[in-house]
Amino acid sequence: MLEAVVEKKLRDYQLDITLTVKAGEVMVLMGTNGSGKSTTLNIISGLLAPDKGSIILNGECICRTETGIDIPVEERRIGYVLQNSAVFPHMQVRENVAFGLKARHISREIISDRVNFWMEHMHIADLADVKAGNLSGGQKQRVALARALAIEPSLLMLDEPFTALDTESTQTVKELTRKFIKKLNIPCIVVTHRIADSTEIGDRACVLCHGKKEWEGLPGKMPEYCTVCHCA
């Protein structure tokens, strides 16, 4: 379970977010461009430091500004899939998926098992030896997903994962995500700006506007307009 309460002064506004995501739950974060969605993810992952606040993941405090706790990015065990999937184009799919495991100095057999497991379940096993730079958008996203899940993260975050994908790939990625979030029983945050995505993939949804949470509830029940800036 993720409990995040963070504040950060940004260029255009003050980011002030409280987010709670249960294990096995997919929380959809919505809002117009510039409302603070990606910034929130960056703060939770540790790439950005909040001005004030705390982040608790599975009962462990990974960040608390009052006491100066700030676990570095590399050690937070958070799977983070960026919008452009950021698969390493010069490495093969297999090497991409294994990347996070190799960084942790796990034994070769375990790495090999896990890599094969995830490649199978993400339907990319037949692409194992292909250079990741040559893949299509949907394939890249699945590789990024496999790579992120292979490290057995305590939290999975996806930033606009469907923007560059066609309908079929979008469906596949959505199904795979939901399936494994439930299986692994970890919290998951998905950032998207399309309402349709939220109903298909999310268990809960919230709407951000100018750095504040305007609304939170069930995906189907999202109000038509948000009160401040008409961003839903």
Binding site: L47, E74, I78, Y80, L82, F88, A103, R104, A148, I151
Partner: peptide
């Protein structure tokens, strides 16, 4: 985004520099 992703996956600065 490449270096950032590498960091979230647990790769140190030096390792990221060398491999990514």
């Amino acid at each position: 985004s490449y270096e950032q992703t590498a960091r979230t996956l647990g790769s140190s600065s030096m390792r990221t520099l060398a491999l990514v």
